[in-house]
Write a protein that binds this DNA or RNA. Structure first.
Lengths: 236, 236
DNA sequence: TCAAAAGTGTTGGGATTACACCCATGG
DNA sequence: CCATGGGTGTAATCCCAACACTTTTGA
């Protein structure tokens, strides 16, 4: 892998290893895809908006670190946590040589614990209205969205963002937010129902219309199947 | 990002940062996709087969490190170098806490400098006949192939593996190797020519048949366009 | 009764698959 | 002249995109 001289050369200049987590949530009321940000507590850039992150501890892998901070900030275990990219530019952090392994996760926005978010001075921001973030975190958010879009085509990831019971109009709005584009609603229904992913329930959600929209839940068996085998949920 | 106590906690337990590079080449004579491996020089696992890699130096980013070792081992600059995944299991290296950022690159096998490969006790192995590698390097190779397959569908990456002039039968064999499946050759020609990527030349390659196969080269303008906009080169 | 959201089908065009034979040439 | 690999076309099918009106019901 390396020669010894390189190894000892490295020893005096440790590289610090951090993780940052792009935590996505879908606000069903506002029909907006959101990202959790907080005001960074340490220098450099203390007080500026930042993704949630942490150094990787000696006894944990990066995914464990990403999972740990997710729980710290939201009280939730991740339904969906995927490594995005490792950012390694030499000057990305002016204070130390720090590389950051970025993850992205999908959570149910209605379940997170508000007091934890408040305690950390964190807040949810619309994907289209992200403020200036520290270092390369804006890049991380934008890379995460692209990844989420690509994954949504091949796997039914979007369901991780919705409550167990949801309506087709909600799911439709979610896909429009993920893809950042208008979708034909008749074709959407046809395509999504054709996957066999959805079980229609008897009940209706009447909070957004007088007629009410039927509840659906996703079929876990079919869901796991498509997660493995892949599908093609893509709209023009 | 973190609190100070975590920072100082980390300081005494540095995590070492390495890169490993899955270098792909296409052997046009044997019609095989190959990966460059070498016998690891340092403990642990000295003498065992390994991907080519190095620690990341204090003044270089990971991509620069990956590029550096590519040049060290092949004498080539990378046409195509992409970050794959960062492997961070705590016990992956029994000696130290080392994480590895894996890259994969595509090179023209006929151009690499043999003496460098020999000097490093390296060799080319068929993608279907990879020996047991150190640590998680078999996983890296298999992840790299999956990534190469996915990228090949959306972008014309395969051309990075071929010389400037190549024949359709060669390109066809290359895609079969990448996808690890049989492809209908008439449909392949139709689809690949329909992209407008290929310029047919006057000359023929007669090394593999009496009739000879026409040379093609790829159209750089169209190539860059499809690299950006994406395409859909996928076969049943 | 009306406003506001939910729900529903068809058709035409383009793309994809499956499939088998002739061509050119050097030995 | 023949063995070897190179090259070609069509028909049937499937999938996708485009598109507009009816239903329900609470206020």
């Amino acid at each position: 892998m390396i020669d010894e001289s390189t190894s000892s050369y490295i020893a005096g200049h440790p590289i610090l290893v951090a993780v940052d987590n792009v935590i996505f949530g879908f606000d069903a009321e506002e029909e907006k895809l959101k990202v959790l940000l907080f005001r960074r507590k340490i220098e450099p850039f203390a007080g500026q908006w930042s993704l949630v992150g942490s150094f990787v501890r000696p006894n944990e892998s990066a995914v464990v670190a990403a999972s740990r901070i997710l729980t710290e900030f939201t009280g939730l275990d991740s339904l969906y946590l995927e490594q995005l990219h490792c950012y390694t530019n030499v000057d990305r952090d002016p204070a130390d040589r720090v590389i950051s392994i970025a993850y992205y996760s999908l959570i149910q926005l209605q379940k997170y614990r508000k007091e934890l978010v408040e305690k950390h001075h964190a807040g949810w921001f619309e994907i289209n209205d992200i403020p200036d973030l520290v270092i390369d975190h804006n890049q991380m958010v934008s890379d995460a969205l692209i990844r989420l879009q690509n994954n949504s085509r091949r796997k039914p990831v979007g369901f991780n963002l919705l409550p167990p019971k949801f309506t087709l109009p909600q799911l439709f709005k979610l896909y429009q937010e993920i893809y950042q584009q208008q979708i034909d609603d008749r074709n959407f229904r046809k395509k999504i129902l054709a996957t066999g992913l959805l079980d229609k329930l008897e009940t209706k959600d009447k909070t957004t219309s007088k007629k009410g929209a039927f509840h659906y839940r996703f079929n876990k068996t079919k869901y796991k199947e498509l997660e493995t085998d892949g599908c093609d949920i893509l709209f023009h």
